[in-house]
Write a protein that binds this DNA or RNA. Structure first.
Lengths: 139, 139
DNA sequence: TATATTGTTTACCTTTTTAGTATAGTTTTA
DNA sequence: TAAAACTATACTAAAAAGGTAAACAATATA
């Protein structure tokens, strides 16, 4: 029951970009070093954030990554889904044929976990990177 | 971001025992067959539920497993923790030395995930197996 | 326009975890 | 005492996680 390492790195990379002046382009090495993320690994996960339109990139000299929207427009859920795909806390919530008992909408375990999953998703959707930036300052 | 298979099996095994007449002893094979759980695997995870005092066991002829308390006294969290240990959605929530930035109580990602984790734990604690039994009947 | 810089793509590798199986042992009842 | 039933421990195969490497494509600028 954990987010994976790539997601954790992505949270920190996005937060780092959010803390730059709007639209500033930062190269992978700078992000990697400041956030202590293995460079090659960072380079591998960034395209996922780009596909989800969370960040943009620019190649060539002076290139790098930049936030593609305002921090307040990016939720934790956006980042999680970009890296891990949809949040599903239990197998039977993806594969309907999985539940051994009471197939259809039957299995009470299935349904209860579905409700809990929905709460989790809501929590993730309710927090954006503007919140996180202020959280840092409040400290 | 998933519960593992063993936890899923445990949910179903406990719910099955909850649906028996109070204190009834059911052998592993019966549980295994009715819930479609590999017998050997079930035999391996049951001791975890016993250590957490969720179920009890009896060896020898006519032996098996039984619920050690009322279904209403067993929460989903109890079962999850019995099988997987404490719920921790992010590495930095277990290992304080992990956060690369702002060590101490600093990292806003750390703290925000901590809040979300607490919500998840509350949801799991708020649901017990009596709820699940009624959920099944309502359908 | 050549070249160094910087991200992209794809493939590969190692380690850990997961899911499941096997075997020998202990308890209990008939 | 023998069969039934759980216990403990070890083992294994497959998948996922985490990370690395190499060849490639785009871009700025000298």
């Amino acid at each position: 029951m954990k987010f994976n390492q790539a997601t954790d790195y992505a949270f920190r990379a996005v937060l780092y970009l959010a803390n730059q002046t709007r639209g500033k382009v930062v190269d992978a090495q700078t992000i990697s070093q400041s956030q202590v993320i293995p460079m090659r690994f960072l380079l591998k996960i960034m395209p996922s954030l780009i596909k989800s339109r969370i960040v943009g990139s620019q190649r060539g000299v002076g290139g790098g990554y930049y936030l593609a929207k305002a921090p307040g427009e990016i939720t934790l859920l956006d980042v999680v889904e970009a890296i891990e795909g949809p949040v599903t806390i239990n197998k039977c919530l993806i594969d309907p044929s999985y539940c051994s008992k009471d197939g259809a909408p039957g299995c009470p375990v299935h349904r209860t976990l579905g409700e809990i999953q929905e709460k989790l998703v809501q929590e993730l959707r309710n927090r954006n990177f503007d919140d996180l930036m202020h959280k840092a300052r409040q400290e």
